[in-house]
Design a protein around this nucleic acid. Sequence first.
DNA 1: CTATTGACTACCG
DNA 2: TCGGTAGCCAATA
Length: 108
Amino acid sequence: MSNSSNFFDQCYEVARQIPFGRVTSYGAIASYLAVPRSARAVGYAMTASHGKDVPAHRVVNRKGLLTGKHHFQGINLMQQLLENEGIQVKDNQIQNFESVFWDPAKEL
DNA sequence: CTATTGACTACCG
DNA sequence: TCGGTAGCCAATA
């Protein structure tokens, strides 16, 4: 059953709508869900996104820093996935972050 | 119900 | 400019 009323599924749906080669922040997703204070909860949802079709590697913090890379299988897996989409990452920091940043509240 | 943890964000020195 | 602290929400024990 699709109990999409949960906070988790809400985050998953938004994350899935992130276009290829773009990234967003936890606060942006939370803001789109009308709960800008729940940025941490969004990250918590991403932790449980394993096994789902959620491109969690496209979700970073508001500074463009790969804070959640440790949760992936490899230490550099998240960075590799981003670079695979044409996103340049340097020292866990996304280059041209605002250029690849995708705001669901504006684009969606 | 209270306490602790965490892939966050904003403010302050 | 940079590092540390506080506030916030959701889940777990």
